[in-house]
Amino acid sequence: MIEINNISKWYGSFQVLSDCTTSVKKGEVVVVCGPSGSGKSTLIKCVNALEPFQKGDIIVDGISVTDPKTNLSKLRARIGMVFQNFELFPHMRITDNLTLAQIKVLGRSREEAAARGLKMLERVGLKEQAHKFPGQLSGGQQQRVAIARALAMDPIAMLFDEPTSALDPEMINEVLDVMVELAKEGMTMMCVTHEMGFARKVAHRVIFMDQGRIVEDDTKDEFFGKPRSERAQQFLSKILHH
């Protein structure tokens, strides 16, 4: 479903990503972890071409993101993305947040979009909040709305960039629960997260990044059994002790 082939990216002379290669199969859940600044966000943003890269290629569902003939808007519309800071549109009600792209990008009618949006909102348990503005919701609720907004587009895969790291501890689980359920339903997911409980529960594979490189790309059992690299071992022991 997602094939990342030897991509490298530079900011000026600083290399953020060095020759990264991996893939995510249909229905697979891949967790990406690693120290801050290791390039996790950059890598995941390359998948839907939010970040350009200079070398290599990424193929999503058979379509190359570097091909100039690729319609990037269309491609992005098929990949859901959830951000660390939610990024709901604060000037719009929840309903409009949910329907905007359905109407403008997918060309759905207002009624169809509203029905689909409401269904997704119900799924994340927030149907009563439909007429509020994002600022009136808690962080955990906002992030669940953001997930619903992405799901309303009927994505073929979902990307998560540290979806719980801006949340108060008591709100983390309500978001993880939604993600676990999504994973169990067979959604293809690439998640940057340090929630190792989540990884143990639903991940098929774990990728460990350090200094722009994919240092470790293991099945879940291999990774939690005994990661081969020393950096990954150190990292794991650090976050598991917290």
Partner: peptide, 26 residues
């Protein structure tokens, strides 16, 4: 914030739509 622009693009909006519907109103 750049995140708002990113979210608009990630949903498939193009530059003009992102400007008109998300950035400029705010």
């Amino acid at each position: 914030s750049k995140g708002q622009v990113g979210a608009a693009f990630a949903l498939g909006l193009n530059y003009w739509q992102a400007m008109k519907l998300v950035i400029l109103p705010q």
